[in-house]
Amino acid sequence: MSAEAVVTAQQLTKIYAGHGKRGDAVVAAHEISFTLYAGEILGLIGESGSGKTTIGRLLTGIEKPTTGSLQWSSAFASGHGQVQMVFQDPYAALNPFNPIRYTLTRPLINFRHLSPAEALDQARTLLTTVQLTPPDQFLVKRPHQLSGGQRQRIVIARALAASPQVIVADEPVSMLDVSIRAEVLQLLRKLMVTGQVASILYITHDLMSARSLAQRVIVLYRGRMVEVAKTGDLLANPRHPYTQMLFASIPNPRRAFRGEALPIPVSGSLAPSSATGCPFAPRCPWVEEACQQTAPRLEPLPDGRLVSCHVVTRTATDGQDASKVAQPRTTTP
């Protein structure tokens, strides 16, 4: 991608120190490096506890990394308010006592220093941008008078109010009905196409919604990047066993009607991984001796994607497909 970099994350690590009786420190993000380009929607995919929200929060500056840094390109470093967040739960993200007018004008007054009259005018424009029209009808409403999809549009409008360069959208549609998800995702894409924001970090646990939105995705497992690829490549041919497991987990009635088994056994073993080994080893159907001993590093494959898996790296050099070479594990611990 020849596009301009907006922000580059370098070796971001976030460790939450343990406290209380269960004093274990939690490594929420481990050496996360990526570049977010202008005009790009980057997907961050993983299950709960994979560190995807932590990385989003590091990008916004709400959290500071334990080690590592974020480098903003000077063209996009607008300072205060340059990253805004769209949250998962539109029912919790809006103050129920405040009318929409207040919710939207406040960031305009605080961040952009508009006069109240200008702010009100701008709030109308924002509502039009998120397709809540006529705007005056929505300005006087409170959150409980709106549907989930409408609330999420308000949350997006509020994020836009600070004129951010980057929007971090953390599971913005997972609480919404399937029927209104597509429209909210289309709205996010439109913000990008019309140049309202430079780039979007789209955080989700749903590969299929990333397919319709993100050009590139990072798959996370327990705070580590396990696969980084163009969305099309990733879905056409997921390589890391965890990515394959995510893909196999998507409901697929056609496969069920054909009576086919899952392409990879899906396992949720909660056994802890060895301190030095691959964090995915306890759940991995291909696990080998080496996986227990050393954690794999992200290595490029011939098609340009990055994968962190001993088996994939070893077999890729022979031009083989790991899933056909690796011995499926016969016994489950």
Binding site: S179, I180, R181, A182, E183, S212, G232, L235, N252
Partner: peptide, 21 residues
Amino acid sequence: RALLRALPDPETPYAEPEGIP
């Protein structure tokens, strides 16, 4: 039909899921 169109099919190449207005 609208519910099915809103649903991404993992077996077909990318098709834009449609909302229900």
